[in-house]
Design a protein around this nucleic acid. Structure first.
Length: 720
DNA sequence: GCGGAGACCCTTTTT
DNA sequence: GGGTCTCCGC
């Protein structure tokens, strides 16, 4: 067997990892070191050199994009379809298991998936129905709480309320929410993972079957695994199976959503005989960029340890641009891009990365002003769009009449005279009888619990749904969708919406029909039960919300958050707003662990750059409506001086508008850094201003009392 | 049932 | 500052 195709494109470290003898293996793969390549080639190696059957390989990723890329690269390398091989996301694989074993998992056969938005709506509804004040129990917080507990593998009955009444109530909300999901036959994202874990916990013989089957378990982005994902993996790894975990602790940026970098350390403890390989040769960035990134990340503690290097050239220094304000920052960047393009560079080679989405607007405006086309990542994806979710809700209700969330969404959409009062009566009836809202319609009608007009409106809705159910039996999926969009009058409803928006919505609805036409059921390799095509389509819509929408194609500058940029690379990168309080974000600055995550985020951002990296900060920034004086991020100071260069023109004088602003601000009579004395708090230093004149507030860092915001009018400060 | 006024919020995102 | 949600009046 000729394996040269598999091994030749690899460097020594990669080859060692790919050919490592069976055993538990951990790969620490630095940014741009060929991580995906190693995973793909490892799978190819197992199959072609070791004669491993694709049937016994499981490869897990976090995103559908990564899973898709992995599968296609494997097929490209092997030049055959990799049938039988399981490649998927944690959620996709859990879903597959639960479909196959719905009975053992104690789920209804046709269970559907509740996406985050539906989950939030459900929880909001529930909190109100429980008679709780949603100011005291914000639905968002409850949602976060529930998902976090599920990610940790906890059910409400296992959580200690520690006699805390608020916590006790949160647990009760979790409890009620669970009951609601059971009643309506839906499962949220976190539940997929938790159920899949419990499924094996409760059915050891089934676990044994999968342990026997999957001899090789490969995990991508291992640093992003949360508690339940790692527990699930550990369970699956039987005594004859091997885990191949690829990750980078320095690129762990999802701690805030439950990811545990500690799992990387835990791996070595759990698998004492495991070996570890490091991929440190970088094929992406210049030496200067790597050295600067290395220096930055060296400020973090408890690292596994890793130093990126390159055979390539040193390259340019890292540029630091100190802007006067956010407009100046944006203009500078636009200007630099124009220069880049004049020098035959492509716009698409340039990326503008920022910490938070709110920063994008000013950048966009500057790009528009300079007629620079751009593409912005983020925002709604196809299956998350309002009109698409409306249409899907009809389909969900057809598929499962217990789906209350779907019914609530469309019972009066388009409006058909079913008001809030009517729906309230339905809810109450459903609650009292422990039935679905759909069933409650019949009950309410029988009991004549509403005025005749409302009853008639309900009857019309019931007739409509009944008609849709009958008309969509035994027809092609696309035809089903088409029929629903047309006869529910969603199409006419959105046609009435004026302007481009309405037009776009209509086009999206058409696109949904197309999606139905091109939808292919996964051809599963084993004994998975036949799944109804509509149900499969709905699951697909929830699990793969589709591409983030943006005008594709043209040569566009790329705008995105630092988080979104992970895994991507660009010749020229601008990190925008590299300022204290923005990056690191002020909400993360106090907690050392979160601060380290911010630093890793900066590391991720810097290592996206291949040739040129510019860090920008503004000395003053308008954010959330008011102006703030800012300080450059501590991350800038952590870069070795010999690797950076200041690109603000020396001796440059602030433009008139800017200096006027400064004067106006300065009528507090104080300058930044000014030492002052306060009667009560003692001596301190001026850190920041807000507003102007006598209503201005000033932030002072007191030597003994810490940092405080004071109103000038009352502060009575003495200048020292 | 809809549209306007006011309250409220505001980090990062995938499934 | 701006986007979203809620409430109230028509």
């Amino acid at each position: 067997m000729d394996v040269s195709q598999i091994l030749d494109p690899l460097n020594d470290a990669q080859r060692q990892a790919v050919c490592a003898p069976a055993g538990h293996i951990q790969i620490l793969a630095g940014a741009g070191s060929g991580k995906t390549r190693v995973l793909v080639h490892r799978i190819a190696w197992l199959m072609q050199a070791e004669g491993v059957s694709p049937y016994s390989i499981l490869s897990v990723t976090f995103t559908n994009k990564a899973a898709g890329e992995m599968r296609s690269r494997i097929e490209h390398l092997l030049k055959i379809p990799a049938g039988g091989l399981w490649v998927g996301t944690f959620h996709g694989i859990a879903h597959r298991l639960l479909r196959a074993h719905w009975k053992e998992a104690d789920l209804p056969q046709g269970f559907q998936i509740l996406d985050s938005e539906d989950q939030l709506r459900t929880i909001r509804r529930l909190i109100r129905d429980m008679g709780l004040d949603d100011n005291h129990y914000p639905p968002k917080e409850a949602q976060w709480y529930i998902n976090a507990r599920k990610d940790e593998g906890q059910r409400p009955e296992n959580i200690d309320h520690r006699n805390d009444p608020h916590l006790r109530q949160m647990i009760e909300i979790y409890h009620q929410y669970e009951a609601m999901c059971r009643r309506t036959g839906v499962v949220d994202f976190a539940e997929l993972l938790l159920r899949a874990h419990e499924l094996w916990l409760k059915h050891p013989q089934m676990l044994h079957h999968y342990q026997q089957r999957f001899k090789h378990i490969l995990v991508d982005e291992f640093q992003d695994t949360n508690t339940i994902q790692y527990a699930w993996l550990r369970m699956l790894v039987g005594k004859d199976s091997h885990m191949f975990a690829v990750g980078d602790d320095d690129q762990s940026i999802y701690g805030w959503r439950g990811a545990r970098v500690e799992n990387i350390h835990q791996f070595g403890k759990d698998y004492k005989n495991s070996s570890i390989f490091r991929l440190e040769q970088n094929y992406r960035s210049t030496g200067n960029i790597l050295n600067a990134a290395n220096a930055l990340i060296a400020n973090n503690s408890e690292r596994m340890g890793k130093n990126l290097w390159t055979e390539g050239e040193e390259g340019e220094k890292i540029r630091i641009y100190a802007a006067f304000n956010e407009l100046d920052e944006a203009n500078y960047i636009a200007d630099q891009i124009l220069t880049w393009v004049e020098g035959t560079g492509l716009r698409s080679e340039c990326a503008l990365l920022y910490r938070s989405n709110a920063q994008s607007r000013v950048l966009e405006e500057a790009l528009i002003k300079n007629r620079i086309p751009y593409r912005i990542y983020g925002g709604l994806r196809f299956f998350e769009r309002q009109e698409i979710k409306d249409a899907l809700s009809y389909l969900r209700l057809i598929d499962n009449d217990r789906d209350d969330a779907a019914l609530e969404r469309i019972i009066n959409l388009p409006t058909r005279g079913i008001g809030n009062r009517t729906v309230e009566v339905l809810r109450e009836t459903a609650r009292n009888n422990g039935c679905s809202l759909w069933q409650a319609i019949t009950t309410v009608q029988q009991e004549k619990a509403l005025p005749a007009r409302a009853l008639q409106a309900l009857q019309n809705f019931a007739d409509l749904m009944q008609g849709l159910i009958e008309a969509t039996q035994n027809v092609e999926l696309a035809e089903k969708i088409e029929h629903v969009i047309h006869h529910s009058a969603l199409r006419t409803h959105y046609a009435k919406e004026k302007g481009e928006k309405g037009q776009a919505r209509l086009e999206n609805l058409e696109e949904l029909i197309n999606a139905g036409r091109s939808f292919e059921m996964d051809a599963y390799d084993d004994d998975l039960p036949e799944m109804d095509e509509l149900a499969a389509f709905l699951s697909h819509a929830a699990l793969e919300a589709g591409e983030r929408q943006a005008q594709e194609g043209d040569d566009c500058v790329q705008l995105m958050t630092l988080h979104t940029a992970k895994g991507l690379e660009f010749k020229q990168v601008f990190l925008c707003g590299v300022e204290e309080d923005l990056f690191p974000h002020r909400l993360s600055a106090d907690d050392p662990a979160r601060l380290q995550e911010e630093r890793r985020l900066c590391y991720v951002g810097m290592t996206r750059a291949m040739q040129r990296l510019t860090l920008c900060y503004a000395e003053k920034r308008r954010l959330y409506g008011d102006d703030k004086y800012t300080r450059p991020s501590r991350f800038i100071k952590e870069l070795p001086a010999e690797l950076v260069e200041d690109v603000r023109m020396p001796g440059f004088v602030a433009p008139a508008a800017s200096s006027m602003y400064l004067q106006e601000e300065n009528n507090t009579g104080l300058k930044l850094g000014q030492r002052v004395m306060h009667k009560k708090f003692g001596e301190g230093v001026v850190l920041n201003y807000e507003g102007a004149g006598q209503h201005a507030r000033v932030q002072i860092n007191f030597a003994n009392a810490g940092s405080k915001w004071l109103v000038m009018e009352y502060a009575n400060l003495m200048i020292l």
